[in-house]
Design a binder for these strands. Structure first.
Lengths: 337, 337
DNA sequence: TTGAAAGCGCTACCAG
DNA sequence: CTGGTAGCGCTTTCAA
């Protein structure tokens, strides 16, 4: 059977209290005893049970990360950043992919509560934001990453999506594009919404007009991006530029263009968002907006740690600045095509 | 404060035993009481503590997944498959990225023990395989995925790497390639080793010779793949084909070729391995070997579940067949270049 | 059908 | 410095 704290205590001829203190580096134990006890723990392959410790009112040292899909490079990179930063403070990471389905979100949220995670980082959207209420009321530290939910009093770490959208619009406008369409995520996704708002606003400011039917809402997949891009590019007067609200959609757009024998960037400019590893390997390499995802993950964890230390900290909303990464998928408009 | 089983019991005017039974669907409780108790749990926002349940000798319903890097698409896809299959049986997933560093592997392995996970899926290599001994001795179910460790009596799910290497060799050979070099992972990685062995064997069988200096060992990154490819392609008589032991390295090779103005596939053929999402978006799209990663993740979890149910099950070694996915990065050798 | 009581392994508080 | 003891929230006999 597994060794317990009792076994160690008995073997060392001390009380479990002493052993406990040695494990946690608390109290004052003679150096001699301490060494001896460590030796015995080693010999018996003893591993203190985090479970039992957690039950005693302490922490589980586990953080939950809820995202739409961990196999999506953007969220995978986010997970890595969160994992690393958490690990530095001794926390491990439980990941949950929701596919943006509310029932999965709900089921995972419930699970996190049952498992008593110390904090939750949420990078997924949900139709009904009230799902979070029970957790907030229960005082579980929560931070939203790359998402916003104004209705909830929780920490938030985001990139300024509006600025990002504006960056793209101005870049495209500068190159002479006038007919620009958008491949958006589902309207319920705030980040996507804000990117579009920023984009439109910059277009407005330039005195241009973006036609409404130039927006297509897509699932978070390459396939759907391709499908919707095909629709957009199949129209009589097709756009000369496509702003895609994430890299996956942009890749779909690239594939659609290839299928229609439309050359990128000569005949069509495509801009993505996120700057995942994918953007650097496409043909042509994707011009896209970079989110400082590593930073964001780090900050999200720090916020959690802060709240864990002092539950009364005021909720913060941290907005990072996105950057336009110019590669080769966008160039000047060529009206002659 | 959080509601406990006592609160529910008191509120319902029954004993905690009854509540416990209702929660777990055990014992015989009158339908009436059952309903009433469920109603109260709902009203008090009660969530049974998995922690407490686990302490009582039951399971934690948590699985550990240890990989080199969750932000690497191959492992991210693996994680997703494992997460989904685990979720079906009520398990959640704890992920750990080791960067292939033994001290990180060790630290995570220890952590999993302390957290009493019910099983561990290992997709990372380690220099010292004996690190697993304590876990095996402790009877913790372990399954190796996309890795092998003959020295350990654990379940293993892999793709037949030798066959995969052979597939690549024959494909390249058929197209007339004779000077072929290899971008390999670290020699300690069994999968990479076997791919090379299979590749060489097929070359042998064709009566050809592969020069030894044609192998470069790389870190698991695009950058290093590029660096080593640059070396290989900078030689006096450069290879006409590059077999890369994973897609990341293949992308590095693609980038190196572009930098040297070597056209792929006209002047150089590049073949990858893994068939991650990356392979479908490169320029040109990558010919690569597909591992049925979803299947593998599912099987790995099933094996764990099996062992959890019956610890005496005999350890299995499941070998899946890889497939060559022909895209556009490899074509016939053109000796005139 | 239902309840009382004995832990699970560990921490924290209070004595000594 | 070190030990005793009371739980933490839940499951599991064993009785009733």
């Amino acid at each position: 059977m597994k060794a317990t704290i009792y076994d160690i205590a008995k073997e060392a001829g001390v009380s479990i209290t002493t052993v406990s203190q040695v494990i946690n580096g608390k109290g004052k134990i003679s150096e001699e005893r301490r060494k001896e006890i460590f030796r015995i723990m080693e010999r018996l392959h003893y591993q203190p049970s985090v479970i039992a410790a957690a039950l005693t009112g302490k922490k589980t040292y586990t953080l939950g990360l809820i995202v739409p899909d961990i196999s999506n490079p953007f969220f995978a990179e986010m997970a890595r950043a969160v994992e690393d930063q958490g690990h530095r403070s001794g926390y491990s990471l439980m990941i949950c992919s929701t596919d943006n389905k509310d029932d999965r979100v709900q089921s995972y949220l419930t699970l996190m509560r049952k498992k008593r995670v110390d904090g939750i980082i949420i990078g997924t959207g949900m139709d009904d934001e009230r799902m979070l209420n029970p957790l907030v009321e229960a005082g579980i530290p929560i931070v939203l990453i790359a998402r916003e939910m104004p209705s909830q009093a929780v920490h938030t770490v985001i990139v300024d999506d509006g600025v990002g959208g504006g960056l793209v619009a101005r870049h495209l406008l500068e190159q002479g594009h006038r007919r620009m369409a958008i491949l958006a995520e589902h309207p319920k996704v705030s980040s996507s919404r804000n990117r579009i708002i920023g984009f439109k606003q910059a277009v407005d400011e330039a005195g241009m007009i973006l036609e409404n039917n130039g927006i297509r809402y897509c699932d978070y997949t390459v396939e759907d991006g391709k499908r919707k891009a095909l629709e957009l590019l199949g129209e009589a007067v097709r756009p000369t530029a496509l702003f895609c609200c994430n890299d996956l959609l942009a890749i779909g757009a690239l594939q659609a263009a290839k299928e229609l024998d439309i050359r990128v960037p000569d005949q069509l400019s495509v801009v993505g968002f996120d700057n995942t590893i994918l953007a650097s390997v496409t043909d042509p390499p994707l011009t896209t907006v970079a989110q400082p995802i590593e930073r964001m993950g780090k900050i999200a964890v720090d916020l959690l740690m802060q709240e864990l230390t002092d539950p009364s900290v005021i909720k913060q909303r941290i907005v990072l600045r996105p950057d336009l990464v110019v590669r080769h998928s966008a160039s000047s408009s060529r009206p002659d095509f």
